[in-house]
Structures are given as C-alpha cells and as structure tokens.
Design a protein around this nucleic acid. Structure first.
Length: 560
RNA sequence: UGACCCAUGGUGUAAUGGCAACACAGCAGAUUUUGGUUCUGUUAUUCUAGGUUCGAGUCCUGGUGGGUCAACCA
C-alpha cells in the first residue's frame, strides 16, 4: 500500500501509524482526530517539527482534525512567551489547528474526576514527604512498600483533598495519589501522584489554583475530553501507556488511544530543551532564534523554507527504532527547495582587486544576468561592470595545480555573463602577498563566445568595485560537534562543544541589486551558498557555507 | 540483573510467508557561462543459534546488543 506525499510529490509506502489508522477505518471508525501537545516551557525545535508534521499530516490525509493543545500543568516552568512562539512556529510550518486548547482549561473537570477516583476508593491523600515517597517506591528490581496513609477513608480523603485545593497546606505537605499496586513491575503504576501542591501563579489561571495535576493524570483525560482518536507521542512514553489506559478505564470516559514513535535525533545537534534553555539563559547564543540553534525560529532565520522542513519530516519516516539522522539530509532538503526558487546573485566574500588595463577608465556598462538558469520566469537583471572589479581570492592561484580552472598568471577565465579576462601581472605587497591583479579583457567575448572562438573552462563571479555594496556577511555552520546529542559530560560547559567554525563574520562585497533585497528573500550566491537577508540587522546576510561545498570539492582536487 | 520497546547497506525507511527495494551519503562518468544543478552508472544490507515451512528479513523459542522506566517534570 502506498500514499502520495504532499511535500515531496512522490509516492511512498504507508508508515506504521497510517496502517493503524487505515485498519481502524476498515473496522468502521469514521473519525481521525490528533493533537500536537507541547508544554510551553521553551521554543520548538526541528524534533518537534517531525511531530507537528506527523500529527497535522495524518489528520489532513484522513480528512480529520488536529488540535493544538498546550500541556500547561506545571506553572513553574511555563510562560506565555513560549505559547506565542509555538503558535507562530506551527503556523510558519504551514499548519492550521482545528482548536486551540490548554490543559489548564480542564483543571476543574480534572479536579472533579479526582474526586470520582477518591469516591471509588482509587485515590488517597498521602502525607509522606517527597523523600519518603521516593524511597518507598522501591526500585526497578525491588517492589515498593505501601504508604501508612494509603487506607484512609473516603470521607477523610475528600476533606483533605478539598483542603489541599483551599490552600490549607504548604507546598510538598500532601499529595493525591492513585491507589494501584506498589509492587507493580512498572514503576509508574506504583501509586502515581495525581496532584501536588504548588503555591505558584499560573500563566493562564493566575492564583485560581494551588494544586496542579501531573502529566500522567492530565494527559489522557485531556485527550479524552477533546475526543482525540489517535494520541501520538514519543517512545519514552511507552511505559506510561498502561497508566494512560487505567485512568480512562476507571473514569469510564472516551477511549483515546496512545501510540508511540521514535523521536528525531540529528548528528551534531543537541535537541534537549533543557540544555537549549541553558544556552539561551547563559548567553552562549543570542536568543532562541540565534541561527546556530536547532529551533524552528532559528531555521527560519537561517533561510530554511517551511516546504523544506516538511519534506525533511517526510523523508526521515516514522518508526519505533531509535535513529540518528545525518544532518546532510536536512541540508539536502533545503538545497533542493532553494535551488529551485532562489534567485542567483554574485558576491565576493574575500576580495581581490582586479584592474582591467585595456578597459576605458570611467566607463560603466550594464551586464545582463539571468536570475535563475532553471526558471526562465525569474527573468534577468542588469549588473554594472567597470574597469576595477573584485573577484574572490579563492578564484586566483599563483601556482595552480592541474585541473584548476580559474585564474592564474597568464591564464584566462570568464567573468560570469561578462568578458573573458587574462591575468597579465600580479601586484604584491612588501610581505609578498598578492594584493591586486592586472588583467586585459577580450572585447569580443561579452556574454559568450570570444574573438577567435576559443573556450575557457573557468567561470567566476565578480562585482564592480565602484558599485558594490560592502556588507558584513555572517557565515553559519553547525553549532555542536557532539556525536551523542545528549552527551554533555559533568564539569564541562556547552562552549566546550561549540564548533569553532560555527560563526564567522567577514566583510564582503555584494552585487548592487541586493540593495532592494527584503528580509526573508531567498538568494543563491553563485558558487558560495544560499542566503537570506537577516531581519534584524540588514544588510547582513546568512549563508550556508557548507551547502555548495566549494571548499570541500576544491580540497579533493588539491589532494590529487 | 525486573518489566516494556527495538534490531535490514555508512545513515534512515520499505518489503505484512514468495526475486531484499527507495532516499541521503560515497565512488565513477556525462552535461553545464555556478567545481552548483541535472543525468547515467556503481559500491554496500537482513544481530546470533535453533525451530516451523516447499519456502523465513517476516512466524516461534533461546541468546546477544541497544533503548526506556525508580521528578511532587513533560
């Protein structure tokens, strides 16, 4: 069985979740309703993008709905700043949620259901300290022991729980626990905590509550309230499923079902929300959208398109086995998209002045350049050309090896869309470094051809010295060099893992047409990489300097 | 030394008892006014030992390896 993909325009086999859904439909289920349930305690990253594409994608494919639900049951970690950023990122990815919900909307219902459980003798108030609860829970190999408060009467529990809500007790003084089995092989079934006391203001409910439900108690019931049919989460929640089912069964409410898939891991990329928060708080980076971050807002700022992220999510697939995706696949996806849509521009990142000695002084002419060779509709533009130009230092070698196609003493090269020039002379400074090239041009070679029909293999980019925009260009590379994404050792800080090449600022000369570039526009610097003007510091630009791989391919040629 | 989940090229994902395939990465070549793109070719895969079967990547049993679980986090 195969399915047509919306993002890549190709056909692929069904993933295991789609097979589950199709089986449900075949069995007569008429409705598919999923949800994306982030806790608003940080910004969304590329790992969340996989989950978003999955949940919204499944709903769309089966004509169902997908909710956006904020899992805001722990006020000490959460904030509206995160709520807002999450909504922005989901929208940017191209998805619309059927309903926007908050676990905190259900606090009253959740509280009433807790009373139900007490009435059924399935929950009790425990006076033990946090330490006592921890030690009496046992270990994975040793059963736990029952709390001395486990067999309080229903009446007593009701009074105590009401007191908890009324604020009669301090944080940590009492908790409400489910009465299940302290010897259960699944640690989560050993009388899990349902409610804890937290005299902390909540970003939505303010001071209305001083008791807050735990994830395990709240999540399945929230799904049930929203009549979610397929509650999809990551693998580590697998052991929570028996509890998820237990609450729904004991309460006799709508039977949502949980399914687990393997979360995304990326080489060189740290995906832990907790650690990303530390990076921001300790100012190792300039905020959540620093282009070196793996967050969605950072990818956006770095020039990724939503289409490319969706295509990536499609390509990594969905399964239950742990995985580490090569960062190269993400880069492939963005290159594939950008190559199609980005207009070409010339830029010189590391300038070397070239004087064309036989070109008239003071003369300027306009050279017609194609905006995108693969898309005629993108049209063309005119770029000024004059006697003095800049070319990239990498495009000249004093002692070129074999198969070097660009400029060298006595050699010829074509200026893209312009003339063929020959290098006649090098000007060096006192230290022997080449600071200027003196060349002559073939007047008959403009745009193509040459005076005698000869061809040159090398084509380089250039900008007119008098007309170029001088700009600070920021080159970004991968942030982390960790092989194991979560492996920050004790005693080390994040800076120990920063890639020294991750941020390089250079002064560059850009084509004048880029003056009118708007933030978010996509361009390709010919032979350098893709870039998008940054939105907070024009005219700086962001470049994928690993994308085209000029340096890599050159290194290989040099090796031979 | 418990319960649960998982095991297919370098990395991912298919094959649902019947020819192990697709993508990325790699390598080689062609095209190219971007050493990009595109195109062609190519290297490389079922953790292990038994069992069931005409036939096992797939089903069964054991082993091995990896992961998850002992927050009043989610």
């Amino acid at each position: 069985m195969v399915v047509e993909t919306e993002n890549t325009g190709t056909v692929r086999p069904l993933n295991f979740l789609e097979e589950i859904i199709e089986a449900d439909i075949a069995r007569g289920q008429t409705r598919v309703h999923t949800r994306f349930p982030p806790e608003p305690n940080g910004y969304l990253h590329i790992g969340h993008a996989k989950s978003i594409c999955l949940n919204f994608g499944l709903a769309k494919r089966y004509n169902g709905l997908c909710n956006l639900r904020f899992d805001d049951t722990n006020p000490v970690k959460e904030d509206v700043e995160y709520v807002d950023s999450i909504k922005e990122d989901v929208r940017w990815l191209g998805f619309e949620w059927a309903g926007e919900y908050y676990a905190s909307d259900y606090f009253e219902q959740l509280y009433q259901w807790a009373i139900d459980l007490i009435n059924k003798g399935l929950a009790y108030v425990d006076d033990q300290t946090q330490e006592q609860i921890r030690t009496t829970r046992g270990t994975v190999t040793v059963p736990g022991t029952e709390s001395p408060w486990r067999n309080r009467t229903v009446e007593e529990n009701l009074v105590l729980f009401a007191g908890m809500r009324a604020g009669k007790y301090a944080d940590g003084e009492k908790v409400l626990r489910a009465k299940i089995d302290m010897a259960h092989t699944n640690m989560l079934m050993r009388d899990p905590i349902l409610y804890r006391i937290l005299h902390t203001a909540h970003h939505r409910t303010g001071d209305a509550w001083c008791i807050y439900p735990m994830y395990d108690y709240a999540h399945g019931e929230c799904d049930s309230i929203e009549r979610i049919t397929h509650s999809i989460c990551t693998l580590e929640f697998d052991v929570h499923r028996p509890l998820y089912d237990w609450f729904i069964e004991q309460l006799g409410i709508f039977p949502s079902h949980q399914y687990e898939f393997a979360r995304l891991n990326l080489t060189y990329t740290m995906m832990s929300k907790r650690k990303l928060l530390q990076l921001v708080q300790n100012k190792y980076v300039n905020g959540w959208d620093d282009p070196r971050m793996p967050t969605i807002c950072a990818l956006r700022r770095r020039g990724y398109t939503p289409e490319s992220v969706r295509a990536f999510a499609e390509k990594v697939g969905v399964a239950k086995r742990d995985n580490v995706i090569d960062l190269g696949l993400l880069e492939f996806c963005v290159r594939e998209d950008l190559n199609r849509i980005a207009q070409r521009r010339m830029a010189v990142v590391n300038p070397l002045k070239v004087v064309i000695t036989n070109y008239p002084e003071g003369r300027t002419e306009q050279i017609v350049c194609i905006n995108n060779p693969e898309n005629e509709a993108a049209g063309s533009r005119e770029v000024p050309f004059s006697r003095e130009i800049y070319v990239d230092r990498d495009d000249f070698m004093e002692n070129p090896p074999k198969k070097y196609f660009r400029l060298s003493p006595g050699g010829e090269v074509r200026l893209r869309y312009g003339y063929i020039i020959r290098c006649d002379e090098m000007v060096k400074d006192a230290s022997g470094e080449v600071v200027e090239l003196r060349c002559t041009y073939d007047e008959q070679s403009k745009g193509g051809g040459s005076s005698d029909g000869r061809k040159v293999k090398g084509v380089i980019h250039w900008v007119s010295a008098a007309h170029a925009i001088r700009a600070e260009l920021r080159l970004y590379d991968t942030l982390f060099t960790l092989e194991d994404p979560d492996d920050v050792e004790e005693g080390k800080t994040f800076t120990d893992y920063l890639n020294p090449r991750s941020l390089v600022c250079v002064n560059a000369y850009l084509e004048p047409s880029l003056v009118s570039a708007a933030p978010g526009d996509k361009f390709q610097f010919e032979r350098v990489g893709y870039f998008t003007p940054d939105y907070d510091s024009k005219p700086a630009a962001l470049v994928f300097n690993r994308t085209v791989g000029l340096k890599d391919s050159w290194a290989k040629i040099a090796d031979k």
